[in-house]
Design a protein around this nucleic acid. Structure first.
Length: 151
DNA sequence: GCCAACGTTGGC
DNA sequence: GCCAACGTTGGC
């Protein structure tokens, strides 16, 4: 039974269109422990990932991806020149992880934050919670179903 | 650009 | 371990 997630990306940095072009990508650069724990411990091959555009116009859910591969250490933590370099990490004891996801679909129109707020069935979504900055969030099966119904 | 929320860092 | 200072996220 696959699980459902929402993952945020700034559209100007990496958008659903970029994923469409690349077909697949490593979900790298996550540097928050709570989000890391989801990526490392909870994401399973076959899980569905709602691709959320943050800091964009409009902001909202832009498409859908599937988890292809898990347990991959984020390569950027070993790259001295990267902003995401992690001096404490070693190959034997990586700290950050980057699952590989594959493009599934880009929604014809972004399901905007405003629209999400208006849907009674989506009221409980974490992404609506005030001050929530977590870039990887679990999504309930009912919420996922409702979102796919709307796009 | 502002600012609320909140995670991280580091002095003690 | 506490907590103030600081940095980052992200909606607006």
């Amino acid at each position: 039974m696959s699980q459902f997630w929402l993952a945020k990306s700034e559209a100007s940095v990496y958008s659903i269109e970029d994923l469409k072009r690349d077909k697949k990508t490593l979900w790298e650069g996550v540097r928050n422990y709570q989000a890391r724990n989801f990526l490392r411990d909870e994401w399973k091959v076959g899980d569905k990932v709602l691709f959320y555009h943050s800091n964009s116009n409009p902001t909202g859910i832009a498409g859908l991806a599937t988890v292809l591969r898990v347990g991959i250490p984020d390569p950027l933590q070993f790259d001295r020149r990267s902003d995401y370099f992690e001096p404490r990490a070693t190959k034997d004891a990586p700290i950050w992880f980057a699952p590989e996801i594959k493009f599934e679909r880009a929604f014809a129109e972004i399901l905007t934050l405003d629209q999400i707020k208006k849907m009674p069935k989506l009221k409980g979504m974490q992404v609506l919670k005030r001050g929530n900055r977590l870039s990887v969030q679990p999504v309930a099966p009912d919420e996922f179903k409702e979102i796919l119904r709307l796009v």
